[in-house]
Design a protein around this nucleic acid. Structure first.
Lengths: 152, 152
DNA sequence: TATTGTTATACTCTATAACTATA
DNA sequence: TATAGTTATAGAGTATAACAATA
C-alpha cells in the first residue's frame, strides 16, 4: 500500500500523497488528449484556445489569455499559428481599434468539433475502469476540490 | 453545469472533460506542495528525488532518474544542488566505479521528514471538503486509472 | 494614465547527442 | 560493445519589460 510500485522502488512518501496520484492520473488523461491533438496537428494549449473561442466568439486576445490564465504575450504566436491553419480569424474591433475580435472560421468550427469528439472518445476508453455512477461521483468531488481553492 | 465558470466565460468543451478537472484539481494540490517546498528552498522535483533516496538509499543517479521518469542528464544539476545544500551525498560505488550511490545526510533525513510533514499538513486542509471514506475511494479510483495506462 | 497587441528577452524544464571513464 | 555520469545544446512553455497605437 505504501511501498512497492512498478519496479522494485519504494515510492512511499509520494505514493501516499493524494496530490501525487491526482497528478499521475491526470497524466494518463493528458496523454490521450495530447495524442488526439497531435493527430490533428495542434497542441493541447491551442485546443484550449479553440474551445474558448468556439463557445465565446468575439473575445479579444487579452480576454482569451485571461480566461486560460496565461500571459497575453503568449497569445500572439498562438493566434498566428491558428490563423495560418485557417481555423481562427482576427477581425478588427469596431468600438476599440486597439483590439481584435476572435472568431472561428467555418473550417475552424468543424475542426474543433471533430477534435472534441476525438478527445471525448479517447477519454471514454477509461470509463471501463469505473463502476456505475463512479464517474459522476468523481467529477463531483473534483469540483469540490477545485472550489475549495477559491475559498482560499 | 456545462457553461459558466468564474468569469462569465463559457468553458463547455473543457469543463465537461474529466481530464481537465483532474488537471485543475491537481493544480490545487500542487500549489500546496509547491508552497511547502518553496518555504524550505527547494522545488517539487527536488523533493521527489529526496523522497526516492529516503526510502531507497544507495540508488545510482540513473536509477533515480528512471524511477522518476526523467532523463539522467537532468539529474546532474539536481544532485549538485542537493549536495550543495548538504542534504544528499554522492558516494563512489565500490563494485562499479562509473557510478555513484546516493544517500541522504542526517541533515537530509531531518529535512525530508520535516518537509513531508509540511506537505501532508497542507493536503489535510482539503480533507474537510470530503465526506467520510471519500478520500480512500478517491485514492482507489485514481489507482485504477493509473493502472489502466499500464494495461495500454 | 491605462490598455491592446506586439516584440525581445530570459528563465525553467526537459530531451538529444556526444564525450570520458569505466564495464 | 554497452553503460554511468557529464556537458553542451536546443526546444517547449511561459513570464517580464518595453514600445506604438489607441483609449
Amino acid at each position: 500500500m505504501n511501498s512497492d510500485d512498478r519496479n522494485g522502488i519504494d515510492y512511499s512518501m509520494l505514493q501516499s500523497r493524494l496530490g501525487y496520484k491526482l497528478r499521475r492520473a491526470q497524466l494518463v488523461y493528458f496523454d490521450v488528449f495530447f495524442e488526439a491533438c497531435a493527430q490533428e496537428g495542434i497542441t493541447p494549449g491551442l485546443f484550449s484556445i479553440l474551445a474558448i473561442i468556439y463557445h465565446n466568439p468575439g473575445l479579444t486576445q487579452s480576454a482569451v489569455s485571461a480566461a486560460l490564465d496565461v500571459d497575453r504575450s503568449a497569445m500572439v504566436a498562438a493566434i498566428d499559428k491558428l490563423e495560418s491553419m485557417e481555423v481562427v480569424e482576427r477581425r478588427k474591433s469596431k468600438n476599440d481599434r486597439r483590439s481584435y475580435a476572435l472568431y472561428l472560421t467555418s473550417k475552424g468550427k468543424t475542426f474543433t468539433e471533430r477534435l472534441n469528439r476525438k478527445v471525448v472518445a479517447g477519454e471514454e476508453g477509461f470509463d471501463t475502469f469505473m463502476k456505475e455512477g463512479e464517474r459522476e461521483w468523481l467529477l463531483d468531488i473534483l469540483d469540490r476540490i477545485i472550489a475549495a481553492r477559491q475559498n482560499k
